[in-house]
Write a protein that binds this DNA or RNA. Structure first.
Length: 201
DNA sequence: GCAATGATGCACT
DNA sequence: GTGCATCATTGCG
């Protein structure tokens, strides 16, 4: 079992977004392992990407995106969902990868319980197929903000299942209609083709 | 099947 | 006061 090291996240953001597909995200909760393989990510790159929070400049909230790679950037959206990002590239260049979907592997019943799903929504495909949903399922909140993910505690990544190029797809990001047209159209969302755990079924 | 909508807290003008 | 890197439910047909 190999924990992804800090220099993995120091690469270009698109490289990291692609390389994260198939890697295993692990959450340790009260001694129990919850984990899943990453099936979908999105890249937010640099100070001029108007889809990125960092395009507004350095603020207390976006400061982490300007920080060193290999840490989390987590924020609350719509008053109720957390988003999990991993900071990439060198310090002072604001960039991160949003984790959008997982295939749940370990702790599936715990994830289901934390999502408090009704029976009609109890398929495994629905537990973690969206950025807000996976944070709820893995109990990821602001207490994990700015967390170094190479320590192998609380939250980390392990080498998973390599995804061949033929199985990887890319396209425009989701939920960024407020961005400039060029940024809205940039194919910076990456996912595993025909995978049932990807968001927006 | 789909589109429309309400929930809900906080960063930022 | 405005606007979110979302999701589950409702109301259609």
């Amino acid at each position: 079992m190999t924990i992804l090291p800090p220099h993995f996240f120091a690469q270009s953001t698109l490289t990291v977004a692609r390389a994260l597909l198939g890697q295993r995200l692990v959450r340790e909760l009260k001694g129990q392992r919850l984990s899943g393989l990453i099936m979908e990510t999105e890249a937010y790159i640099g100070p001029h990407d108007t889809a990125s929070h960092a395009s507004k400049g350095r603020t207390p909230r976006t400061e982490l995106m300007f920080g060193p790679p290999g840490r989390t950037y987590i924020y609350l959206i719509y008053g109720m969902y957390y988003m999990l990002n991993l900071v990439t590239e060198e310090e002072n260049f604001p960039a991160a990868v949003l984790i959008r979907a997982l295939e749940p592997l370990e702790g599936v019943e715990t994830m289901q319980r934390q999502r408090a799903l009704t029976p009609t929504l109890s398929q495994r495909e629905r537990f973690t197929n969206g950025p807000g949903k996976l944070c709820r399922a893995l109990q990821i909140d602001l207490s994990l903000n700015n967390w170094p993910v190479s320590l192998g505690q609380n939250l980390w990544l392990e080498a998973g299942q390599p995804i061949p190029d033929a199985a990887a797809a890319s396209g425009p990001r989701i939920g960024v209609d407020y961005a400039q047209p060029a940024d809205r159209a940039a194919p910076w969302r990456v996912w595993v083709r025909d995978n049932p755990f990807v968001s927006r079924r």
